[in-house]
Nucleic acid binder design. Structure first.
Lengths: 267, 267
DNA sequence: ATCCGTCATTGATGCATGTCAATGAGAGGC
DNA sequence: GCCTCTCATTGACATGCATCAATGACGGAT
């Protein structure tokens, strides 16, 4: 009990508050949501939150650490679906079938908030702001998935990695962490898998960007030395940098701007 | 007026009823939803339903015909996001930002049902079944988008096209149309664009599959001659054929089974 | 019926990126 | 502190698919 208590915070006191809880919820509404949230103690690297086939019962958000979701095919090969940072919600794909179709695993020591889906459904019928936000959250995830499809179907390896790094950068900025200097929570293999590239390609492009003095890479530590040129490499307009990146959170869509879709490689 | 009336049907009388309206809605609930739906007369091929940048006000379902959604980048290149058949809902990606970020265009003469989003939100707070279904619908779209990401990032051209055809086949079957003999509503260019392939590749693979007597292709008319071998080509388990394909509808997820993710090309 | 524009097909060629192979560098365990 | 295992890097080579180019086939308009 004591052991657990030190990890337990309320939504009201949580530092991710602004990111995770809709700011349009009133204090009392947040309190109601808060009462439904289960906070367990941190789980270790490589421990799963849920696995494909598990009964769907809850949605999850990352409190600290990082999570990847993935599926495993018949041949036993893993396919990375997404990465989640503090304040981001995952497990949304399981609502439709009532069963998890992907697995979720901690990339490092990670604390998770769990919100029982039944309860969330009830609450969203009562709290209009919550319903609005859940719809936006789900819709936002769809938009981002479609953006990723575009990335995967039309962009070069360099563009994919550029976009990926800029996306992470944005997400760290939102969390008031350095957008230019951060640690990749995932392995190169995971990055390649996620972006549809061979590990070797990821590696080569990292070193290429390093040689161009756009990036400084030391293992998982990354420093963006020249954001402007990184944008150029990724074919991303600098002006778009502050929008559209990152996974859904309860607040997703609230701050969202129309997402520019441009910058695709011509064939 | 007379001109319009002949296209107008109620949800209750609509032949897509079972596909489009959640069957768990009671008769009176369907009547309430029905009252919110606007049915306009058919639009012609190449006419848009909405365009990127338009204010988001409604969700749409196809009543007859077919629709594609797409975005256009800065260079003016089009990127196909999805295809929608009768009973399927589109426009979901616009909820989060309040603005359409993609455009939707009729691939042939097409009738559309429109449901104002404000009203849908209101109703979903009142009608529990409707809320449940909307959440499932959105979640289902997310699952499918993730499946597509997997297709785009890991599969060969042949697998992509095989999957694409099998997906269409499933969707036609659901609509009580022939799953083995149908007309592609979209151009080769659109197929290639959607699947991240050059038109020429699509064409070549169609003829290759034809020469193997797996497929019979005559312009847009397609006949699947050997479903079993088509599955083999697509690396899809025959047993999975009846599940997991097609875009969300109001009923999406209701019939949904756990989606097998397998069958990815090994590198 | 004929014309014209869009769409589909087919072949030749090149390139981006996957695959194979081998070495190097950290990180965790005894 | 050393060992081992996993992960990252780098080079050589192979290939699937894009690109370029040209012809053919519809299908809608007049």
């Amino acid at each position: 009990m004591n052991d657990q208590r030190k990890y337990v915070v309320s939504c009201q006191a949580c530092s991710l508050n602004a990111l995770c809880v809709p700011h349009s919820l009133t204090e009392s509404e947040v309190a109601i949501v808060d009462a439904a949230v289960k906070r367990s103690k941190p789980i270790q690297r490589n421990k799963t939150v849920f696995e494909a086939g598990d009964k769907f019962a809850s949605l999850y958000t990352v409190r600290s650490g990082a999570v990847k979701t993935y599926s495993v095919d018949q041949e036993g090969d893993e396919h990375v679906i997404g990465f989640y940072l503090p304040g981001e919600m995952f497990g949304l794909d399981a609502i439709s079938s009532g069963q998890h179709i992907s697995s979720a695993k901690a990339l490092e020591t990670t604390a998770i908030c769990e919100i029982p889906y039944n309860r969330l459904e009830e609450l969203s019928a009562q709290i209009h702001n919550l319903q609005t936000h859940m719809y936006k959250l789900l819709s936002h995830e769809i938009s981002e998935d479609q953006q990723l499809q575009l990335l995967l179907s039309k962009k070069t390896a360099e563009e994919r990695i550029g976009n990926f790094l800029l996306g992470l950068s944005s997400r760290y900025r939102l969390r008031h962490l350095s957008p230019t200097s951060f640690r990749l929570p995932m392995a190169r293999t995971d990055i390649g898998n996620y972006l549809g590239l061979a590990v070797e390609t990821v590696s080569r492009i990292f070193t290429r960007l390093q040689k161009s003095n756009i990036l400084q890479v030391d293992g998982k530590e990354v420093r963006i030395l020249d954001q402007h040129r990184l944008c150029a490499v990724a074919h991303v307009d600098d002006a778009d940098l502050f929008h559209g990146h990152g996974h859904g959170t309860l607040a997703a869509g609230v701050h969202a701007e129309p997402i520019r879709v441009g910058n695709i490689r011509k064939f």
